[in-house]
Write a protein that binds this DNA or RNA. Structure first.
Lengths: 150, 150
DNA sequence: TTATTAATGAAAATGGTTTTCATTATCATA
DNA sequence: TATGATAATGAAAACCATTTTCATTAATAA
C-alpha cells in the first residue's frame, strides 16, 4: 500500500473518518483500468492488508459510490463492478462480451453522443417531469477472441 | 388464463414442448406494460394457476430470453426484470427513478438515436473487432413524485 | 394408447450482498 | 499527547435472488 492517506484531502467532507481500508480501496480503484468486483478488490488487497474484511470492502464501495467518487455497474453477470469516476477521466461507455464477460471502455463519438444525451435529457425533463442525473450506454456482443472460438 | 396455447404457433421451433406454465408466463408478459420480476410474475400467475412453481418461472424466463421473445434488464436493484420484445413494439429505452425504482419507457428521438447507435456499432466493429448484437441506453434520475417528496 | 423423455415443482444449494454485534481505531477535545 | 466518544471494522450469521437436484408428471411422437 502506498503512503497512508494520500486520498484524504480529495475525500474531505464525504466521510467522518478516513481509514486504511478506505484509502486502500480507493487507491486500488484509481490505479486500475479494470472494472473490479468487491471480491476481486478484497482478494487484491488481502496481500497488502491481511486484516481487511470483505464486509468493509462492500461498505466502503457503497460509501464511495454515494459520494460520487466511484461508479457501480451491473453488466448482467450477477455481481456489481466498480470503477473510479474522475472529472479528468474522459466520458466513456462499455462494450460487453456476452460470452466471456470482457469489458472494453470506449469513448468514440463522445461529442455527438453527449449532444444527443443532453437534448434527450432536456426533452424528458419537460415531457415526464423527470430530472436526469446520469445516463448509461452499453453495447452487447462478441469480442474478437470469442468470435473465433465460437 | 386465456385459451390455452394461444402462443404455440408464434413460438414454434424455440421449444421442444409447449406447456401451460410457458403459455401463462409469455401471455402475462405480452399483456402488461410493466417490467416484472420473476417473483411478481409468479405471484400474479399463482391466482390463475395455483400449481405453478417459482423455479419454472425462472426456467421459462431464461428460455424465452434465449429465444429472443423477451428481454431481461437489471436496473441495479438486485433483481432482474423482464419485458416482452416484439418486432411491432417500438424501439424504446428506460428512465429509472433512483429513489422509488419507477421505470418509464420512452422512445423520443428514436431515429437520431438509432442513427448514432448504428454509426457507433459500425465504428466499434472496425476499431475493436467487436460484433454488436444489442445495445442499452438508460437514464437515471428522479421522477416527478420523488422530486416533491425529496 | 403407450412409451419416451422433456418439463415440472419442492427442497436444498449457491453466491452476492447486507446485517448484527462485540471489538478496535480515529480524531476532536482536554 | 493523552483521553473519551463514537465511527469503523471484521467475523459470523442472515438475507434474498437465482440455480441445481431429483423424483414425479405430462406432452408428444409413434
Amino acid at each position: 500500500m502506498p503512503g497512508p492517506y494520500r486520498w484524504r484531502k480529495r475525500v474531505e467532507g464525504h466521510f467522518c473518518r478516513w481509514t486504511m481500508p478506505r484509502e486502500a480501496i480507493l487507491d486500488l480503484l484509481t490505479r486500475t483500468s479494470q472494472h473490479l468486483t468487491a471480491k476481486e478488490i478484497y482478494a487484491s488487497l488481502l496481500q497488502l492488508y491481511p486484516g481487511i474484511g470483505l464486509t468493509t470492502v462492500y461498505r466502503t464501495l457503497d460509501l464511495l459510490e454515494k459520494s460520487g467518487l466511484i461508479k457501480k455497474f451491473n453488466f448482467g453477470r450477477g455481481e456489481n463492478r466498480y470503477e473510479f469516476a474522475s472529472e479528468n477521466k474522459p466520458h466513456h461507455h462499455h462494450l460487453i462480451c456476452t460470452k466471456c464477460g470482457q469489458i472494453i471502455d470506449y469513448s468514440d463519438f463522445a461529442n455527438e453522443e453527449l449532444e444527443l444525451v443532453k437534448k434527450t435529457a432536456k426533452h424528458l425533463a419537460e415531457k415526464y417531469k423527470f430530472i436526469v442525473h446520469d445516463h448509461n450506454i452499453e453495447f452487447y456482443g462478441l469480442c474478437q477472441q470469442c468470435q473465433k472460438r465460437q
